[in-house]
């Protein structure tokens, strides 16, 4: 039956993943290069990592970025979850088409348009540009991603669970907090993580909406990258990649382990061993 996993398929996967991972791997390897020339291997060294610790500008930028990402991801998660509930639960309400349009359009809108339009808004209302304008801009575009993630969980949500809670005397708001939220929590958490990384990652929108004193890490990296490849940039990139990899891989291992436990329990129950 599963003879379909042919040589063609294996080749496609090997080539595909090579393409995806080789550039990142090279970047990581060359961050340990002793030579300042990034394309010539001059022996193993961790020199550039120590240099990073002395680079106050980069550390400042990293700190700004983390704060922006944390605040914007958290607010975006709340707003995006509300929007997902509105879209999946409330059927047709006035202005629904416009609403879903405003949710889905930012997913594909080129960053330069979003960035410019938000900047002009902040200028028009005379809002001091800086940390908070970046945060507001990030909330706006990341909440749409959160909404889509949560929405795809909510469409498969068995609504009779909520009805059962109401039926047993639990008012709607409490039902949301004790039944709905715990069950959709994994989707909400991955929505938050997505918003967090999108915010960490964003260069264009932040560049438009920033003001004096608020420089994010991508902006700092970008201004250095334009001057050429340096091992320090390789080093900071490696650190970022390592953090993301550890978080994503451990998150997926935890969910995988839970899934295995669950399947085991279900098999045992089905086999009647537990009865």
């Amino acid at each position: 039956m599963r003879k379909g996993f042919s040589a063609f398929n294996v080749t496609a996967l090997v080539l595909g993943f090579t393409f995806l991972y080789v550039p990142i791997l090279l970047l990581v390897i060359y961050s340990f290069n002793a030579s300042r020339l990034v394309t010539v291997w001059g022996g193993f060294s961790t020199e550039w990592y120590w240099k990073l610790l002395e680079n106050d500008q980069l550390l400042d930028a990293a700190w700004v970025t983390l704060r922006v990402a944390f605040i914007s991801a958290s607010v975006a998660t709340v707003l995006g979850t509300l929007a997902a509930i509105a879209l999946t639960r409330y059927g047709r309400f006035t202005g629904r088409t416009l609403f879903s349009g405003m949710i889905y359009a930012p997913l594909v809108m080129p960053d330069v348009i979003t960035g410019l339009s938000l900047l002009l808004l902040f200028v028009a209302v005379n809002f001091d540009r800086g940390f908070w304008t970046i945060t507001l801009a990030h909330i706006t575009f990341t909440m749409c991603f959160v909404c889509v993630v949560v929405q795809s969980r909510l469409v498969t949500f068995d609504r009779s669970l909520e009805e059962a809670a109401l039926d047993l005397g639990c008012p709607p708001l409490r039902t949301f907090f004790v039944i709905t939220l715990p069950i959709i929590l994994p989707a909400v958490v991955s929505g938050w993580m997505l918003a967090f990384t999108l915010s960490l990652d964003d260069l264009v929108i932040a560049s438009f909406t920033t003001g004096p004193g608020a420089t994010t890490l991508p902006m700092r990296i970008y201004s250095q990258v334009r001057l050429g490849v340096t091992p320090e940039i390789n080093a900071i990139c490696t650190i970022l990649i390592a953090i993301v990899t550890v978080v994503v891989v451990s998150a997926s291992i935890v969910t995988k382990r839970q899934e295995i436990e669950r399947q085991k329990a279900e098999r045992l129950a089905a086999a009647g061993v537990m009865e």
């Binding site: 068995d158 009779s160 669970l161 009805e163 059962a164 809670a165 039944i179 069950i183």
Partner: peptide, 8 residues
């Protein structure tokens, strides 16, 4: 409920 709707 038909689906039992047990809180998982």
């Amino acid at each position: 409920f038909q689906s039992y709707a047990l809180f998982p």
